[in-house]
Structures are given as structure tokens and as C-alpha cells.
Write a protein that binds this DNA or RNA. Sequence first.
DNA 1: TCCTAAATTGGATTTATTACAAATATAAAG
DNA 2: CTTTATATTTGTAATAAATCCAATTTAGGA
Lengths: 142, 142
Amino acid sequence: MDIKTIIRKYREMGVRLTPQRLAIVKSLEGDRSHPSAIDIYNRLKDEYPSLSLTTVYNTLQMLKEMGEVAELNLHPEKSLYDPDVTPHSHVYCIRCERVDDLPYAEPPEALLKKAQDLGYKVKDVATIVYGICKRCGEIRDH
Amino acid sequence: MDIKTIIRKYREMGVRLTPQRLAIVKSLEGDRSHPSAIDIYNRLKDEYPSLSLTTVYNTLQMLKEMGEVAELNLHPEKSLYDPDVTPHSHVYCIRCERVDDLPYAEPPEALLKKAQDLGYKVKDVATIVYGICKRCGEIRDH
DNA sequence: TCCTAAATTGGATTTATTACAAATATAAAG
DNA sequence: CTTTATATTTGTAATAAATCCAATTTAGGA
């Protein structure tokens, strides 16, 4: 998520470079917290009081199409966004919803094979580890 | 998802065996379509006109706690339910939302290792293949 | 500086899910 | 078979995420 790259991409796409978009891009830069759209909105609304949630959603959608962010389906009820689009996996704490990165690992070949046999054109593979994070384990396991 | 087993489990849990619960369990038996709560509700509402969506959610929640169904986070906005709780993976069509089963495949050991190193107590691993199913591929790729 | 197409805003809408109080019905006891 | 306690269902309202849309604003080229 390099800002210069993104600004260039915006220009190339003939898309306007608004302060809102720039703010969203900048807030996402280097962010490893895997925020939701509303998280991003809340972060920025003090600095941009007129910012609208719709704009956050629109911008995330656009960044997704540009290949600059990935949408993660870790949480059953909301999408989380990840500015790191290099292949990697995630651990998700089922108690506090914390997300941490895991390294990239080649998915089992047998799965891709079987998906293709079923007629699927494979676009992506996600591996998600579900567990209880250190902090939550300490809190409840007294 | 064996009905006799479930009835026995209900009894053991001291939980009442209502027609609604039985209908939901029966409709799920052997179902490989990965329905949402609303799908299940729609299927049953003709036969059980008084059935409420809340009851469907309650029952799914209970079956989940009994270990008889798994909740899948494949779709960004809704949960899908799977009465096959044996370990296996899924392919998800990003166009039509179709879901197919994939065999079980051992997740990469390096991921579990890393999650544990981060302090997580690992509970589950999900591998999801995203792609375009045969039918959708044929429709749009003229 | 002006102008227009593109973008933002905010309020309303849709969809999934949960909360809750009142009505109902299971299943055990008599 | 009837009664009864209480677990469960129901329906409606409340939440929450995400989308829609018309009116307003603005980026950026002329």
C-alpha cells in the first residue's frame, strides 16, 4: 500500500484524487489491525468531520478493484480490510476478534485439483486459523 | 447429522423436542447445499406456517453448540450452515455463491506453528477456495 | 477563474441477526 | 387423562452492516 503508487494508479484510472480518498489510503498504509469500514470511518471522522461512511465503502470498493486492499471474511457479520495484498494467512481470535498475520503457506494441492475437477476456475485460496489469543486465554482460563 | 443421535442428545441435554426443532434437523439431514438461516426458514414455512425465523436461528445456535452443525463464513454478509461436521473444505463461487465440498486436507503445519508462537490456542482451521463455478464460467465467458 | 462531470454527503433502505415480552406447548407429575 | 411448571416459540421491534439515491459540493481541465 504505497501512497505514490496509489496516486499514480488513481491518475491512470482517470479517477479524482479527493482528500477523503487520500485520508483513507494514508490511514490504511502500514496498518496491520485489519479494520472494518466503520473502524476506518471512526478513525478519520475527527479529522474529516464531513466524511461519510458511504465514501469509506466506495473507496474501499475502489481500492479492492485496484488490487490495493483485500477484503477478508473472517468475521461472520462484517468485512475486514487488509492493505497487505501479498499472499498470507490470518489467525482470528474467536473471543475478541483480534486478527494476526500468518506467513504465506502453499495450500494443499489436492484442494485446488479437486476444485478444478468440479469445474471451478480458481481465483484465490484463504486459510484461516481460528483460535483464542494469548490475552483472551489468560483472562478466562484464570 | 443422524436424527436418532440428535434426539438422544436433546434428551441428554434435558432440552425439549419440539416439532420445529425436529423439522429443522430433518431438513438439514444429508443436505449439501450449505443453506443460510433464511434458506432453511423458507423451505419449512409452508409445512410449518407458524415457524419463526428466530426459532431457526435459535435451533441452529443450539445445534452448533451440540456440535451437529458448523457455521461457515464464506459469504461476507451471512452465515451458511453445514450439517457435515467432519473436517473438510469448501469452494465458493464468487459470482453465484454456490458452495461445493472439498476433501479434507491437512493444513500447512507452519501456520499452526506460527499461530501457537503468537500465543493462540488453535481451535480450528478453515481453507476456502474462491473461484468461478462451471456454470458461471460458461455464462459470462461467451 | 469557470465549468462540468465526478465524488461526497446524509438520510432512507435493505438485509442479516438478535432482543424481548407475551403466548404456547412439552413432558413430567398426579 | 388432566394439570402444571417452565422451556420454547412467536412476532415485533431493535441493531448493525452495507447499499441506494437525490441533492450538493468539488477536483481539475479549459
